[in-house]
Amino acid sequence: MFEARLAQSAILKKVLEAVKDLLTEATFECSDSGIQVQAMDNAHVSLVSLNLRSDGFDKYRCDRNLSMGMNIGTMTKILRCASSEDTVTLRAWDNPDNIIFIFESQNKEKLSEYEMKLINMDQEHLGIPETVYSCVVKMPSQEFARICKDLSQFGEAITIACSKEGIKFTAAGDYGNANIKLAQTAEADKEEEAVIIDMQEPVKLTFACRYLNSFVKATPLCAQVKLSMSGDVPLVCEYQIGDIGHIRYYLAPKIDD
């Protein structure tokens, strides 16, 4: 039997909103250690890696490893039926054909059950080698979301240049161009407002706005985002999910002809 309970469904609701633009379906790998998802978008340009540790759940039981193929659109619809304060329980039996979502209101007076059919999926797993990145930037997630949104008006791609001085985002298009520079924070009153750059060597990479704008849907999950970059390798854009895990997005760069 598999059973995982979260005291508040808000986290799971936010996770679904953070992946639904990129994924139509995904396999949820459930084991003793927790729930993991690794899935690429249809174009095989970006990859979502979600990790929810079992010890982050209020209750977690997984008697045997399960791979459950889920339709992300349907799952999103179901999670939208839960109030943020509702308790959510995911339940499945061994060799399941479906998974049950149980929402319980705070006063325990409303109990909702939604059963969703699982789907058989061809698994496509990518091995991601351990990488030491040339630049690792931590910055406020809302600021990153704002920059992606603002610069998307000027072009289809954003060039990110990181150096000792700071991080520079540039977009160029037919109507003009724009750039936004962020300096490393000298002294941040609050940790979540800091811009921190850990640089081994400068990096300049170009990425499609479309994907970056999908990644920033994870903004409500965490006040800070971590961007890891090295020359000519995919960007890693990471958001912590409270004390329970993280979501990482990998995005292949665009390169000049």
């Binding site: 174009a43 340009v45 791609a157 170009t206 390798v233 292949a252 665009k254």
Partner: peptide, 14 residues
């Protein structure tokens, strides 16, 4: 002109 690279150029199927 920029070209979009695919992830498989960097990561391997396992």
């Amino acid at each position: 002109q920029t070209n979009q690279i695919h992830l498989q150029e960097y990561y391997y199927h396992i």
